[in-house]
Write a protein that binds this DNA or RNA. Structure first.
Lengths: 253, 253
DNA sequence: TCGTGTGACGAACAGTGTTCTACTACCGAA
DNA sequence: TTCGGTAGTAGAACACTGTTCGTCACACGA
């Protein structure tokens, strides 16, 4: 683009390079702010936040930075790594309180609710978290404090170790599910409306064919997204407590 | 391709169609077996099974059927629907036993293990199941029988309803995680080898920075994939039992 | 002042899902 | 048997995707 900026120019004739420079550039505008992984992650995050995961591509990020897609690869190995960096930036905002043995279950709940809220705020980020082992120092730190919470609650070491994975997987998958849902229905479809459709569907089930399900129709339609998420947390926490009381049960009868 | 098969031929000059037919086709080979949604799903399933989810595309399926990608769209709305159909075909092979109140927990476990095995057998299929509401009759039937299992165990109606979602999400997300894992590391990397790397990583954690985590390093490295999955099932089942005993606990202290 | 390394970047590659349009094969009615 | 409408088939094209290549400009150390 700086075709009309003859401050410094290079001509070539075969292997010979001739440079003609007149003066230092003294224009007020910064000389095209340099790229960096940080700036790339920032833009990707912003785009995910306002247009969803599928709207973000190497090209769209580059365009917003006023450059071409190829330039990004000097700072980021590939799309996968970019996703991982975005996830890390988001997840590192999680705050885990110091353990209070009296209310460790509520504390755990609060952290998980906070985590889901973060994912919800940045749709699409959760997709990258499935199958990722959180090895960055920041994330490890969070995991460490979570483990402290469980230990304060008297949960077995083995149960704590595995539960960390389990609960992270749960929150992530709920977030992914919500995100898939969002991007399938398009942003147009109303939450309430869809809920009503599902409700109706379950109520109209043929009783002969689905005896149990149709008797559960009221319960199936009950509760909103948050109620269901809360139920999952309750089950997980109640489960790990129960498991810790009778550890090492053999898997076969 | 049947350029050398002058049984019936049609020429045209503008709006005029001239058809020259000689005789009924009596060749042994079937006249280019017609496409159908079933055949398409079958091929897609087979390709996922042997080359993974990412290797399957509308073009690859069409190629194997000896046609072009556009032809598939007469039988299948889009890629999303194809994925859904594949999922349904796989999931419909699930078998849920008649409930036995004495061993309902083990029965539930067995079904879940079976479900994960199915997903594992067809990598990539699980991806489609996240965010899908199982509305097809076959899947509803399975869900109905699962609900019967829980009811036989004395689980509350509300807990049963929500637990169905929860447990399906858990199995699916474990399958997705394994699949992502598989396709990231490439098929080359050994399971055992990676496991050893993770083990080493946790053992070498700086104790000062991650006090809890490093004291859990042994527990963190313990167990293989199936042990961890089993743990998750144990926690979920123990959790729903506990939840059912003290239902409708208020969410805030 | 002169090289040179690092980063920028247009173009191109090989792929994706999807749609448009032309066409042909088939089946039932005349 | 002939005709017409329709349902199924496909090539080409569109608008994308992530990624790589080779060229290039610029800033910095000698």
């Amino acid at each position: 683009m700086p075709d009309d900026d003859p401050v410094a120019r290079t001509f070539r004739a075969g292997p010979v390079r001739i440079r003609v420079s007149s003066a230092r550039r003294e224009t007020g505008q910064p000389p095209r702010e340099r790229l960096s992984a940080d700036r790339i992650v920032e833009v990707a995050l912003a785009q995910m936040k306002e247009r969803g995961y599928e709207a973000v591509s190497m090209r769209s990020v580059a365009r917003e930075l006023g450059t071409g897609a190829a330039s990004l690869y000097a700072h980021v190995a590939n799309r996968d790594e970019l996703d991982t960096l975005v996830l890390e930036r988001v997840a590192s905002r999680l705050e885990v309180p110091d353990p209070d043995p009296e209310r460790w279950q509520e504390q755990l709940r609060e952290v998980m609710v906070q985590m889901l809220a973060l994912y919800d705020e940045h749709p699409g980020v959760a997709r990258a978290s499935l199958g990722m082992v959180p090895m960055s120092p920041r994330l490890m730190h969070i995991t460490d404090r979570l483990a402290a919470l469980l230990r304060a609650g008297g949960v077995t070491d083995q149960a704590t170790a595995w539960f960390l994975d389990l609960v992270a997987l749960y929150v992530s998958s709920v977030a992914v599910e919500r995100d898939v849902w969002r991007s399938r229905e398009g942003l147009a479809a109303d939450h309430e409306q869809h809920h009503e459709v599902v409700h109706q569907f379950f109520r109209d089930l043929p009783e002969a064919e689905f005896p149990v399900l149709s008797s559960l129709s009221a319960a199936l339609a009950n509760g909103d997204q948050d109620d269901r998420f809360g139920f999952g947390l309750d089950v997980l926490i109640a489960g790990v407590v129960a498991y810790s009381r009778r550890p090492w049960q053999s898997t076969d009868g």
